[in-house]
Structures are given as C-alpha cells and as structure tokens.
C-alpha cells in the first residue's frame, strides 16, 4: 500500500474505534474492515473505517499498528 496522509487528529474509544476525526465527532461507522496486506513481507493487518462525521463528510481512514498511527485512505467529495 502506498503512502497515505498521516493524521494525528483522530480520537478513539477504548476499543480503538474512531470517535472524532479532525475535531469532528464521528456520527456513524459506515463500514469497518481489516486488510492483511503483504503479510509475507512482514506487514501487519490494518483496520479500515469508513466514517461519517458531524459535517456529513465521509472518509476512509486506517490504523497502522506498526506505526501506531492513523492514515487517511480516501475522502468522499
């Protein structure tokens, strides 16, 4: 997977599920999926979330466990 934008402003609950994105409350988790990627090259499984924020914007973000960081995968215009 290529480089995506690092996002530092994601707040999560105890289960590491996003509840705020760039300061905006996450109203709904529209979809959640896991992707193991290139496991044979040592990549760890990533957790993806498609979220709907309070301003009705929709984004796909993922948690990179090795970096312990969130990245923006896609934003729906």
């Amino acid at each position: 997977m290529g480089k995506h934008q690092l996002i530092t402003s994601v707040n999560c609950n105890a289960q590491n599920i996003p509840i705020k994105f760039k300061g905006l409350p996450v109203l709904e988790i529209l979809e959640h999926w896991a992707d193991t990627g290139r496991w044979w090259a040592g990549e760890a499984e990533k957790s993806f979330y498609r979220i709907r924020c309070s301003n009705e914007s929709i984004h796909e973000i993922y948690w990179e466990p090795e970096q312990k960081s969130w990245y923006l995968y896609k934003t729906y215009d």
Binding site: A34, R38, W40
Partner: peptide, 14 residues
Amino acid sequence: SVEAIHPERPVNGE
C-alpha cells in the same frame, strides 16, 4: 503467487 492479486484470495485473517 503471493504477490499476485486474485479475487479468490482472502483479504484478511478473520
């Protein structure tokens, strides 16, 4: 092989 994409291959370990 692992580097090839194929619709039959699983995307995760669930």
